[in-house]
Structure formats: C-alpha cells, structure tokens
C-alpha cells in the first residue's frame, strides 16, 4: 500500500502523505493557506479559524483536518477569502492594534495578512474594553491589546517539567493569555526570546530591545506573507 494519496485544492492536484493535515500538504505543494494559531511542531488547536476551507460544503480548519484521498477542497474562493479577511478584521477590532508604534510591525503575521487580504477599514465597529500591559517580570512584557489568543506561547513555552509559562484566564470575551508570575521571574534569556519569536503579533515583547531592525528590512517588508510557499 502506498503511503501517499491525492486530493484537490481549488482544482489543483495535491500529493500528500497519509496522516498529514490539509495545511501541511498544501504547503508542500506550493499552496498558501493563511494561519495564525498553527505552529509547526506542536499539536494544532484550530482556534483562529483563518485556515478554514470548505469540504463537501462544510467548513473545516485545514490545520486540524487530515487529508483523505479524493477529497475536493475549496480554499482560495471569493467566499473564503472574504471570510478570512473578516476574521483578520475581527482580530483588529477586538484590541487596540496600533501598528505604527508596535515593535513587531513588519514582523507581525496579523499585519502581514491584513496587507495580503487588502484590509482597508474593518467592517466591524471597534469593540474592546481597556486592556493592560503587564510588565512585572524581569524579561518579558505582555501587551493584552495585541494578543489574539492563538495559544502558541501556551503550547511552546514550558519548563523542563512541562509546566506552562503561559495560560488562559477567564472565558468568552474576557479571555486573556497571562504569564505565570512566579515562573516569569526565572525564565531564561533563551526561552524569553523564543516566547517573543513565537508570538505572531506584538503581544509578547522582550524587554530592553525595542526596534532592532529598521523599517523596510523586516521580515514581511522584504517578502509578503505566503510568497515563499507560493514560489516553492
């Protein structure tokens, strides 16, 4: 039995390894599907919903759905593109995302997707309460306005015992990602930098650095998001 299978995304034939997710297969075949919460190497938890595709007229998140031979996946249609754009807008209106002053500007995946999907003015009214910047730990600060609750820090930043540095607090609209106060005191430099790197937006900031690269030379200044996958 072969361990590959074929299926289609927007009519294009995709060759995938069995057990792969649609997202992984798409990436290997040069098809870009936007993601925010997904992070290579950790178990996906479809929470941003931006990677949604349509299979048999049903929405599924491509980061969590395994491939199946013969499936027909819709991804880059007008309907789904607008859906993705609306999710980007939704994230923008649910916190104060002030890009011009953000340390991550140019390296921010949310901002980069905003450009890719040509977001102008969000269709939704701004709707966030006052949020805090928590800067009590020695190495890191957490700007709650910018947090999109992707859970990447929660899944990747752990100590040797597997204890998580980051966790959720509350639920619904009051949901926050907070850092463990005790553990924040002793986090290593290396892990603190990793926390900042893994954050898709500018919610986790390594203290004392600010802007290390000038505008114009940052990641998505040079290469629009997704373009590397598409030229593969």
């Amino acid at each position: 039995m072969s361990d590959t299978c074929k299926f289609k995304i927007d009519g294009k034939e995709i060759i995938a390894k069995k057990g792969q997710t649609i997202l992984e297969a798409a990436k290997e075949n040069g098809v870009f599907i936007p993601t925010l919460c997904n992070f290579t190497g950790v178990k996906p938890k479809g929470s941003c919903r931006i990677c949604s595709v349509k299979i048999n007229d049903r929405f599924m998140t491509s980061c969590t759905t395994p491939v199946a031979a013969g499936m027909e996946v819709e991804s880059n249609t007008e309907e789904i593109s607008d859906l993705r754009k609306s999710i980007i807008e939704l994230l923008f209106v649910s916190g104060n995302h002030f890009c011009p002053s953000c340390e991550k500007s140019g390296n921010c995946e949310l901002q980069a997707l905003g450009y890719r999907y040509q977001m102008m003015v969000p269709r939704f009214p701004y709707s966030f309460d006052k949020k805090n910047v928590v800067a009590t730990g020695p190495k890191l600060l957490k700007d709650q306005d910018r947090c999109i609750k992707c859970q990447r820090c929660m899944k990747t930043i752990k100590d040797d015992e597997g204890k998580r540095y980051y966790a959720f607090k509350n639920r619904g609209r009051d949901l926050e990602v907070v850092m463990d106060e005790e553990m924040s005191k002793t986090i290593t430099d290396e892990l603190a930098k990793e926390a900042m790197e893994n954050c898709p937006v500018g919610s986790i900031i390594y203290k004392g650095v600010g802007f290390s690269e000038p505008i114009g030379t940052r990641k998505y200044d040079k290469q629009p998001i997704g373009s590397l996958i598409e030229t593969n």
Binding site: G46, S47, S127, G172, R173, L175
Partner: peptide, 14 residues
C-alpha cells in the same frame, strides 16, 4: 462562550 475561537469570542458581542 469558551472564548477559544476568534469568531465566537468576538462576534456575538458585536
């Protein structure tokens, strides 16, 4: 709402 999905966390309020 548990708040996990971007859509369910934000849209009902809006």
């Amino acid at each position: 709402s548990c708040g996990s999905c971007s859509t369910c966390r934000n849209l009902p309020y809006i």
